[in-house]
């Protein structure tokens, strides 16, 4: 299968505030410390929109914005894939609460923000991007499913694809039934051409194999506790700039990725 170049990365989680500043942790030079996450600013949104949108939307757009800023190309020309297990649980909680109240006062804003492709919609509006965009969930394998779809899209259309994976802890009481330990979002700008800046990847979908785990206990807890963070072994391998192979568990079928720096 043809390789796929990673051109840029965006990253935001507790203790991982941006791709560049996270290098020491991802390469193992410094242990992971779950420092409080800075507020996702998502400055590309107009100020009035920024006030209306949720933490989920801001987090997804923040990492997308970071990756595109590194690559320094027009976001309006780039197809996108948004992968998230739970979408915007904060909004879904508000709607379900409203439905228990007399007259069921569901907010129209909450309703339109409840769709899984809400961050994709705001991203398209903010960047003026009319390119195709797909939003997908695959529970704990959402990152791998998103990477597979992004790769298939990049190869089919021979064009760059921005993959954005994100999940946030749901509010109470949903969090009791869907534990996500911390917010995590990552964006990868993928290019099917060979003029890569970071690392070329080779993807192989095949028989089920166990996913890679991480040596750092704190990072491993994050990886296991957030579907988007299941991409961490890949991010560590890219940061180390060494040849390697990581398996991103994907239910019945594994997605393994060869990295060739």
């Amino acid at each position: 299968m043809n390789p796929l170049a990673v051109e840029a990365v965006g990253l935001m989680a507790p203790g991982l505030a941006g791709w560049t500043t996270s290098q020491a942790v991802l390469t193992g030079q410094r242990p992971y410390v779950a420092e409080p996450m800075p507020a996702a600013m998502a400055t590309l949104l107009p100020a009035n929109e920024r006030r209306r949108v949720t933490a989920t939307i801001k987090l997804a757009l923040q990492v997308a914005q970071e990756a595109m800023a590194q690559a320094d190309i027009d976001a309006g020309a780039v197809r996108t894939v948004f992968a998230s297990s739970g979408g915007d649980s904060e909004i879904l909680d508000k709607i379900c609460v409203a439905l228990t109240q007399p007259d069921r006062p569901v907010s129209p804003t909450h309703f339109h923000q409840s769709v899984h492709n809400t961050p994709a919609g705001y991203w398209a509006i903010a960047t003026g991007c009319m390119q195709p965009s797909l939003s997908l969930p695959a529970y704990d394998d959402s990152f791998a499913a998103g990477l597979r779809e992004a790769a298939a899209l990049a190869w089919a259309d021979q064009t760059r694809v921005l993959l954005v994976a994100y999940d946030l802890p749901p509010p109470f009481p949903l969090v009791e039934r869907r534990m996500i330990v911390a917010p995590f979002a990552v964006a990868l700008l993928l290019n099917p051409a060979q003029d890569y800046r970071l690392a070329p990847l080779r993807l192989e979908s095949g028989a089920n194999q166990p996913a890679n785990r991480l040596d750092d206990a704190g990072l491993e807890q994050l990886r296991a506790g957030n579907p988007a963070a299941r991409g961490l072994p890949l991010l560590c391998a890219i940061a180390r700039r060494k040849a390697g192979r990581v398996v991103l568990s994907d239910g019945g079928v594994s997605l393994s990725v060869e990295i060739e720096p």
């Binding site: 979408g87 492709n117 939003s135 997908l136 779809e149 979908s205 994907d250 019945g252």
Partner: peptide
């Protein structure tokens, strides 16, 4: 769907409203 049909390949939902 995949379990009902006895399929073990790639599977995903698409959720774009």
């Amino acid at each position: 769907t995949r379990r009902w049909l006895g399929l073990t390949g790639v599977a995903m939902a698409i959720s774009t409203a």
